[in-house]
């Protein structure tokens, strides 16, 4: 019962924070509300027993997305971009009405669902043995529906290329992001020295644990990316130039490895086929490669296109 009340309160809170994020007068405030909202949703996921999703939501949905948005707000402020005035009430009313209708329709659809539909839980459980991993979510992600994940990692690559291609032509060959000037000895600099080893450890663990417990390449990669970003913000490391061969190898390595395994599978029974006896090792290999590339890609996404001249 307390659980139910907690859930109801959580739901209301989530809705309220979401509203605040949407309607907030101040953009920065909205983004902050959005980060809070992400954390609350992560909480909701744990309430639903989906710890993997909760981790992903917290790390990616709230964390990285929040960082991206905060960074963007800061850039716009620096660029002196003003906020537009809100739309007229009439238009707002119509928009609101139609959104309410849409939400209602979704609600109706939910209400009409068969409460006993079992989904694929049982099927996954049956095949878990052959997947080579103990975490059913990882099994789905990297084996049963590994093809989705392959495409997904490539999506990250597309976006990175897209972000880079938004650079000014004159900065091509330069390093991503603006140069960070952390105060020497400031908080950031201190954390920058202190945190990386821990973060690295945590990240590698999350990746490694992902095969049997909640976690995995995405969550782990995000942590690694965050670590690198922190260090970079501290001014301790700088991104290599976008034209650097090793940088490009890093971002491509994971997906390429995945693809190589997938194609190699053709000779072992079919595209993306992971023979059960080697599945675990293969998945761990893939996860390792992916984590590296994901970490690099996510970090570079946050850093943005090169905005500094080439050497």
């Amino acid at each position: 019962m307390t659980g139910a009340i907690f859930d109801i309160v959580l739901c209301l809170l989530i809705l309220a924070v979401a509203l605040a994020a949407i309607l907030g007068r101040d953009l920065f405030g909205s983004v902050v509300f959005f980060i809070v909202y992400g954390l609350l949703v992560a909480l909701a996921w744990t309430r639903l027993g989906a710890v993997d999703v909760a981790l992903a939501e917290a790390a990616i949905g709230a964390g990285l997305t929040g960082v991206l948005l905060v960074g963007a707000v800061a850039r716009l402020r620096r660029g002196g971009v003003v906020e537009p005035t809100p739309p007229r009430p009439l238009a707002r009313g119509a928009q609101m009405g139609i959104c309410v209708l849409a939400a209602g329709l979704v609600g109706a659809a939910i209400a009409g669902l068969d409460p006993d539909a079992a989904g694929l839980t049982a099927t996954v459980a049956q095949n878990l043995e052959a997947s080579g991993v103990g975490n059913p979510v990882t099994a789905v992600l990297l084996n049963f529906r590994g093809y989705d994940t392959l495409l997904e990692t490539v999506v990250l690559l597309v976006v990175l290329i897209g972000v880079w291609s938004l650079a000014e032509d004159r900065y091509w060959g330069g390093r991503p992001g603006l140069r960070q000037h952390a105060k020497p000895g400031g908080v950031l600099a201190t954390y920058g020295r202190f945190l990386p080893p821990l973060g690295l450890l945590a990240g590698v663990y999350v990746v490694w644990a992902g095969t049997d417990q909640p976690g995995g390449a995405f969550q782990g990669g995000t942590i690694l990316a965050a670590v690198w970003l922190l260090v970079a913000m501290a001014g301790l490391v700088d991104a290599p130039p976008v034209t650097a061969r090793r940088l490009r190898l890093t971002i491509v390595a994971g997906p390429a490895l995945f693809l190589a395994v997938a194609v190699a599978g053709i000779f072992m029974g079919g595209f993306l086929h992971l023979p059960p006896e080697h599945a675990k090792q293969l998945i761990q290999t893939i996860e390792a490669g992916l984590a590296l590339s994901i970490a690099a890609t996510l970090a570079l996404l946050v850093a943005g296109p090169p905005q500094r001249g080439a050497r």
Binding site: A50, V53, A56, G119, T121, V137, F144, R145, D148, F218
Partner: peptide, 10 residues
């Protein structure tokens, strides 16, 4: 919890 939606959500 059904792992398939979870994977898809991730």
């Amino acid at each position: 919890p059904d792992p398939v939606p979870q994977a898809l959500i991730i």
